[in-house]
Simulated scan of single mutants.
Amino acid sequence: MTIRNNWTLQEVSEIYNRPLLDLVFQAAQVHRENNAYSEVQVSSLISIKTGGCTEDCAYCPQAARYNTDVHVHALMPLEKVVAHAQNAKANGASRICMGASWREVRDNRDFDRVLEMVTAVNEMGVEVCCTLGMLTYEQAEKLKAAGCFAYNHNVDTSEDYYTEIISTRTYDDRLHTLENVRKAKLTVCSGGIIGLGETNEDRIKMLHTLATLPVHPDSVPINALVPVKGTPLEHNKRVGIDEMLRMIATARIIMPKSVVRLSAGRNEMSLAEQALCFMAGANSIFSGEKLLTTPNPDVNEDRLMFQLLGLTPRAPFKDVQQEHAHLVSEKG
């Protein structure tokens, strides 16, 4: 299948609105043609700095302005991050994502400490991903030099609906960070959240934004909102499995080679519902008891699910083995 970056909004809309079984069937075919369909990339997320964020993202319990049960924790010590990463690797994770509740990266001692964490975790032979807020090209280059493999920065929703959810930064700020990440030759992880009160058209526009970037994101997380008491969206209704399937299947069809990650909201899904998501093209999950501050399925549950469905964990640095080996040899 040809990789396209010129999808029209009408084309994406027609795919998204197909009868659900037809949509899932087509996505499953695209997935098998373009990927090792039984391989699932297992990621683990470590909140290296929690709470106290100055942003006003309406879904986020880490925003300082909301009264939630999230307690503020300063930047985690290096030894603790390494211990968490070692445990995650022992439980099958091939990617360790480190998240800090910052609006943007600042060139200070804390960023220097994050660079040390990146180097230490990279030396374990796993992919390192960071999600630290907005960053400049120079900061992205520093992360790359330290051994960072990927950077996550979600667009969250459509450009039209974005101002209903966040006022402390713009949609263009998001896209500019993604440009800096790509320019620094880090792999790009960018997706969004459904269940924020957006329409189907907003969901289609968000997928269209991602699929018409100059290069598709290497990873596309699809999150279902987990409503948290104390946030403006605490009373939002949870999204249904049909809505998740439409997002995953459409993402798979229009971005055939991207890793599509079944992210937040998985804790509320049955095994059968998760199986449908894998069939529709999801090929990555977060493993571990928490996603930053929200619950996630137990590692043992995931192990049993993999056995039952015949899934295998994807090896780190797949398809980029030679490039990574070159980087390691340069450092050594």
Rank of each mutant, 00 (worst) to 15 (best):
L135R: 02
Y66K: 02
Q139S: 09
E141M: 11
M76I: 08
N154R: 02
E141N: 06
M124Q: 14
A83Y: 07
A145P: 06
V42T: 14
M134T: 08
A146G: 09
K142A: 10
S94G: 14
T50P: 06
S47R: 00
Y137T: 12
A83K: 15
Q139T: 07
M134V: 01
E116N: 08
H73V: 04
H84S: 15
E116H: 05
V40F: 01
A90C: 04
V118H: 04
A58P: 08
G133K: 08
A58N: 07
V82M: 15
W102C: 04
R95K: 15
P77Q: 07
W102M: 04
M76A: 03
H84K: 14
N152T: 11
A64M: 11
Y59K: 12
V128K: 05
M117F: 05
V40M: 03
C130N: 14
N91E: 10
L115D: 06
M117K: 12
L45F: 02
A90L: 11
M76S: 05
L135V: 01
A100H: 01
N122Y: 10
G52C: 05
N87Y: 07
N34D: 09
W102T: 04
A100E: 00
R109V: 12
S44W: 02
L115N: 07
N67P: 00
K89N: 02
A140W: 02
A64G: 04
V114K: 03
D56P: 10
K49N: 09
G125R: 13
N152E: 08
Y66Q: 02
N35C: 11
Q41C: 13
Y59F: 15
S47A: 14
E116D: 13
E138N: 07
L135S: 03
G51V: 15
R65L: 11
N67W: 00
Q41T: 11
T68P: 00
D110M: 12
G147V: 12
L143P: 13
T136W: 01
E79Y: 05
E127D: 06
V42S: 09
C130F: 05
A64C: 08
G99H: 00
D56V: 08
E79T: 13
A93G: 07
R103H: 07
M124I: 11
V126N: 03
S44T: 14
A64N: 10
V118T: 11
V121H: 07
A93S: 15
V42K: 12
V72I: 13
S47I: 00
